[in-house]
């Protein structure tokens, strides 16, 4: 042990690679080999091919990579894959219902034009869904608070705010 100081770490890494990562992603159980240093963002995009989750700043400032982990919005660029092992992960691809029917928030974005280039849109919609699931009738301050981690360079947020208002109203009517 004294002579081969590097060995244990290497052995541990190999073990970690061999350990399986299990979680639910968009309602489906997943079992994958995942290196310990893998970020959730890379797992979702590269291993699962779910490219609706976007990569933009990679430091937790823009929200383009937002996913839900146990219902809470999380910047997937800041989370390691192993941290969400065994948890329930939902990406933008899992927001619509099983038959592909759009979620009311998605519909509201479509109808109000709450997007332009669309690159921020998946993350934005994930954040809005998380907010409205938790607070169906948010105040303007709550809305600002919940979405100020989602940057949009194209829209100036006008269409986004109108889309969220519409989603709130529809939610109200359907209650």
């Amino acid at each position: 042990m004294i002579d081969d100081g590097a060995e244990p770490a290497a052995a541990e890494a190999v073990n970690a690679v061999d350990r399986f990562w299990e979680s639910t992603v968009n309602g489906r159980s997943m079992r994958l080999k995942v290196p310990p240093a893998k970020r959730l963002l890379d797992l979702v995009r590269d291993d699962l091919g779910l490219t609706g989750t976007k990569r933009s700043c990679e430091i937790g400032r823009c929200g383009a990579c937002m996913v839900l982990v146990d219902g809470a919005p999380v910047n997937s660029c800041l989370m390691m894959a192993y941290q969400c092992a065994g948890r329930d992960i939902v990406t933008i691809e899992g927001i619509a219902d099983e038959n592909g029917g759009l979620h009311p928030v998605q519909r509201a974005f479509l109808e109000e034009g709450g997007y332009q280039c669309g690159y921020c849109t998946p993350g934005m919609i994930v954040s809005v869904k998380a907010l409205l699931d938790a607070v169906p009738d948010p105040s303007p301050e709550e809305l600002e608070e919940a979405l100020s981690g989602n940057l949009c360079r194209c829209t100036g947020y006008g269409g986004i705010i109108r889309a969220v208002r519409r989603a709130i109203e529809e939610g109200r009517e359907n209650r």
């Binding site: 490219t51 990406t91 691809e93 034009g113 669309g118």
Partner: peptide, 19 residues
């Protein structure tokens, strides 16, 4: 009108060239 590229954008289904 709903933009022709809208559904792909709100569902994450639209592949950008960096995807």
């Amino acid at each position: 009108r709903i933009r022709p590229d809208g559904p792909g954008k709100v569902t994450g289904g639209l592949a950008y060239l960096t995807d």
